[in-house]
Amino acid sequence: MFKIENIKRDIDLMIILLTILLLLIMPLVYNNYFFLNALFLASLYMISSTAWNIMGGFTGLISFGHAAFFGIGAYTLALSYNNGLSPWIGIWLGGAIASLFALIISFPLLRLRGHWFALATIAVGEALKLFFNNWDYVGAARGVELARKEYSFAWIYFIESIYYNYVAVLILVISIFIMFLIIRGRIGYYLQSIRESEETTMTIGLNPFKYKMIAMVLSGFFTGVAGALYAIRYRYIDPFSVMDLFISVQICLIAIVGGVYSFAGPLLGALIVTPIAEYTRALIGGAYGARFFGLHLLIYGVILLILSLYAPGGLMDVLKRFLRGRYR
C-alpha cells in the first residue's frame, strides 16, 4: 500500500501527506498567534471530522451529536490531568471513555435508521450537555480549569503556543494513520457496504449491527481524542465550549464540505473551512460587534447549499473532477 507508485495514484494518501507537511512547515513560516491558533483548530477538526466521516460518510450513520464524544474526551483529560495523570495518557484515555460512551449509546440508537438516527443523536448530545451543566463533580456550569504544572513537554504546558501545534500534529499523524489503515482494510469495505445496503451486506455473512457498532466506537474514540487536545490547549472547558450543538455542527460541516465519500475529504474541509471561520469570526466579528458572530455560519450555509446542489461529494468531488484521468 505504501509503495511510491501506489501513493502517487492514491489521491487520499497524497492529500494526507501534503496536509501533514503543511501543518509541519506553516507554523515555522508564519509564527503568528492567531494563525497558529487557526492551524491548531484545523488539526483538531481534521481528527474529529475524519472520525465523524467513518460514521457519516462511510457507514451512512449521520450524527449531529459528536459534541458528546468531543466533550467527554475534553472532560476526561481535564479531570485526569488535575488528578495527576500524564496528559500523554490522558489524551488516549479521553478517546477510550468517549468510545465507551459510544458503545453504550449504540445499543439503543442503532435500532433507528436514517432521519431518526440523526434526530436521536441531537437529543443525546444536547441532553449530555445539559447534564454536565448540572453535574457538580465536573464543575457544572462553572466548568473545569486545568491545574497549573511546571512548563514542560511532559505536562503539555507551554509558554509559546507553537509547541501545542506540534503536539497536535503528532496526535493527528497517529490518529489519521490508524483510521486510514482501518478504512482501507476490510472493515472499511464492510462499512461502505452497509451504507449502500444493509440487506445486501447480510448476504455476505456479515452482521450489520456489529459493524455499525464498530464504526460508532472508532468514531467516538478519535473524536474524544480531539476533544482532549482541545482541553490541553485552552486549559479551560465548560459544557458550552466543548459539548454544544455548534461543535457537532462544525465537525460534520467540515466533513461534508470536504467530501464524505473519500477518506481525505475532511482534511481538505478542515484546511479550508477552519481558517475562514476563525478569520471571519475574529476579524469581522471583532471590528463590527456581536451581530457578525453569525457571519461565518452564514457563509457555511451558503457553501453547504451550493455544494449540496452542485457537488454532493464536496470539495474532493471538485478536485477529482479537476484531476480526472490521473487518479482512479
Partner: peptide, 22 residues
Amino acid sequence: PFLTQIFATFALLLIIRNGFFV
C-alpha cells in the same frame, strides 16, 4: 442521498438564522 437532503435544509437553517442575526 438523504445526507444531501438533510444538509440542504440544514444549510437553509444556517442561512436564514444567521442572515437575520447579521
